[in-house]
Design a protein around this nucleic acid. Structure first.
Lengths: 227, 227
DNA sequence: ACCTGAACACCGTTCAAGT
DNA sequence: ACCTGAACACCGTTCAAGT
């Protein structure tokens, strides 16, 4: 016990010129939720094939992986918080864009998808995440508000919102996959593939994403939920 | 060198009553592609939260994880082969079901989705896999053939097939996520959510899956790919 | 309360070697 | 050629302890 006191006093006196609290990290920037999330975003931006891991993040912050458990219960929570931080950089209000409800909705979804495309590692996590941060809630709310503005019934709106956000994540997650060369197939054995072969990889990513949302919205608006 | 010969002869004579080849595993069933995939399917069926891993699979087969690299270049290939094996249990021909092209297409996609729901761990892998086995090719071909039968232009058909299969995987992968309790939100701050709140979790999984494909197909058929 | 080190129980993959 | 063991370079998480 007295040994503990002695060590503590030594510690304090050695760093007395810096503000010393119980959570001082000896000159290193303090470990806060914000600092952790900022580092996580930086790691994601460095990106490449290497994913953002808890251990790599801890290394970046000059600490051990266990320290982060004081702020996040598990990696999923950390990923959710990181997504919400990234969403803070997007204007998520329903009225943020020009045009009618349909154009606004497409632009909002494209903005969200582009964000996920920039962080394919995160897109994979979001797939199984069910995020619930304030910015994600704002995104969900805006999608619903725009469907409502388009006169879409609440049931179709609710189920459709799910579809739209799911599709955004799925497209970005798939982009994280490495390209596999398309096998040549015989037209006789696969007539459907032969029929579509000229268009299977046509268009730019941007064109395909916009078309996907156009088609989804059209289908959501036109398809009632009662059998 | 002579020590090696000595050991080999000892080995052979000790098991001479069993068929001895260079690939004998001393009474254990021989390691083949088929045996590995069968064991993989069995592991998936045991399922639960524990995923199918290379090491667990090797353990099941009474060998080390490195042995499987004689048959598969990496885990992605193993997952792809496993998916293709599972698809062998589904009738994937375009004419396999009753009704018009639309009903047949929905039933085919529902069958595929139900398969993925049964193996949520696999669904996550498929997300970033771009499978290319013969049965998956058959699925792709049938989706395209049915869209063609519906008079959908080839461009919309090609892009739409992508959307449909992506959505199937996304719905199944999301189901692998643990449930997060929906936070109560203020109607004033989130009017869109308040509007849809009664329907956000309504319906059975089956109803939602069918509606998703109905809506997607309607949108795909109605939305041209030229701007 | 905040932060840590050591340890636990895993992963996929490579490589040199064994039969 | 087919199969293996040991090793490499990682993971997320728990726990008891330190200040």
């Amino acid at each position: 016990m007295s040994a503990n006191v002695f060590v503590t006093i030594m510690f304090v006196s050695a760093w007395s010129d810096a503000p010393v609290t119980s959570r001082d990290r000896m000159g290193k920037p303090p470990l806060t939720r914000e600092a952790i999330i900022t580092a996580a975003v930086r790691l994601l931006q460095a990106g490449g094939p290497e994913r953002m891991t808890l251990r790599r993040l801890a290394q970046e912050l000059d600490t051990g992986p266990t320290s982060l458990y004081a702020f996040f219960g598990n990696v999923a929570e950390l990923h959710a918080a990181t997504l919400d931080q990234l969403l803070a950089g997007v204007d998520l209000r329903p009225a943020a864009r020009a045009g009618g409800w349909r154009a606004r909705l497409v632009e909002l979804l494209v903005a969200y998808t582009e964000l996920l495309f920039a962080y394919p590692g995160l897109a994979r996590s979001v797939m199984t995440l069910r995020p619930s941060g304030p910015n994600y809630m704002r995104l969900v709310d805006s999608v619903l508000a725009l469907l409502r503005a388009g006169g879409v019934p609440a049931g179709q709106g609710a189920w459709g919102m799910n579809l739209l956000l799911q599709q955004a994540t799925a497209m970005a997650a798939e982009a994280a996959a490495e390209e596999v060369p398309w096998r040549e197939v015989s037209a006789a054995e696969y007539p459907g593939i032969a029929w579509a072969s000229g268009q299977l990889f046509s268009g730019t990513r941007h064109q395909r994403v916009r078309w996907a949302f156009d088609a989804l919205i059209a289908g959501i608006a036109a398809t009632g939920i009662t059998p």
